[in-house]
Simulated scan of single mutants.
Amino acid sequence: MNDRVMIVLDSGRSRFQFRAAALIWAQGHILIHRSVADPFWALPGGRVEFHEASAEALSREVEEELGSASIVGPMRLLIENFFELGGRKAHELGFYYDVQLHSPPPFVQDAIVHRSRDGDTELEFRWALPEQLSSFDLKPTALIPLITKLPSTFAHIIHRDHQ
């Protein structure tokens, strides 16, 4: 589809974006990914497009990045994330869902288990134990304590870096 438009609004040095992300588990580890050009990691997912439900966006992103159909389960977290990246102030709404993959990447500890391209960006994926996430510089940092002990019910978090 050539008319795909992600929900991103830039205004001067500020950016708003709408993102959906996956909580994918295997053997007590969570799947994380990053652009090979970035020093930080995130949960797999991506930006939501106009006229697309967040769960649909996540299913699309998982298929594009991991090459697997998925079952998107309930939304577990809504994080309003305020941060700076590349000299730009950002406000992100992140919807985090439980996701099961039909064809998950192999489970291998301490190794990159999958690589893919998203446009011009090369992505790499790996499994990480929740207690190791701070050593991966997982973003948003509000996820680290939440993933270590996920709330049993839906949670809405407001996270502000550097404030």
Rank of each mutant, 00 (worst) to 15 (best):
I7W: 00
V8L: 11
V8C: 08
V8Q: 05
L9I: 12
D10P: 05
G12F: 04
G12D: 04
R13S: 13
S14P: 05
R15P: 00
F16G: 06
F16I: 10
F16A: 08
F16N: 04
Q17D: 14
F18S: 11
F18E: 09
R19P: 00
R19Q: 10
A20M: 03
A21R: 06
L23S: 02
A26T: 04
Q27S: 15
H29Q: 02
H29V: 06
L31K: 07
I32E: 00
H33G: 01
R34C: 07
S35R: 09
S35E: 07
A37F: 11
A37M: 11
P39Y: 03
F40S: 10
F40W: 14
F40Q: 01
A42R: 03
A42T: 10
L43Q: 02
L43Y: 02
G45L: 00
G45R: 03
G46F: 01
E49P: 00
E49D: 13
F50N: 07
A53W: 12
A55R: 09
E56H: 06
L58Q: 04
L58C: 03
S59D: 12
R60V: 01
R60L: 02
V62W: 07
V62Y: 01
V62L: 14
E64Y: 10
E64C: 08
E65M: 06
E65R: 07
G67I: 04
G67S: 05
S68N: 04
A69I: 06
I71D: 09
I71H: 10
V72G: 04
G73N: 04
G73R: 12
P74T: 12
P74F: 07
M75Y: 04
R76S: 10
L78P: 04
E80H: 15
N81I: 02
F82W: 05
F82T: 06
F83S: 14
L85H: 12
L85I: 12
G86D: 10
R88I: 15
K89A: 11
K89L: 12
H91N: 15
E92M: 07
G94F: 01
F95C: 14
F95I: 00
Y96T: 09
Q100F: 07
Q100V: 14
S103R: 11
S103M: 10
S103E: 11
S103G: 05
P104R: 03
P105C: 10
P106T: 08
P106E: 13
P106H: 00
Q109Y: 02
D110F: 13
A111G: 00
I112Y: 07
R115K: 14
S116V: 12
D118Q: 14
G119A: 06
G119P: 01
D120Y: 09
D120N: 14
D120W: 02
T121V: 15
E124V: 12
F125H: 02
F125C: 08
R126L: 15
A128L: 05
E131V: 09
E131M: 08
L133C: 01
S134C: 12
F136M: 02
F136N: 00
L138Q: 02
K139Q: 13
K139E: 11
T141V: 14
T141C: 08
A142I: 07
A142D: 09
L143T: 08
L143Y: 02
P145R: 11
I147R: 00
T148F: 13
P151F: 06
S152L: 11
S152A: 11
T153A: 14
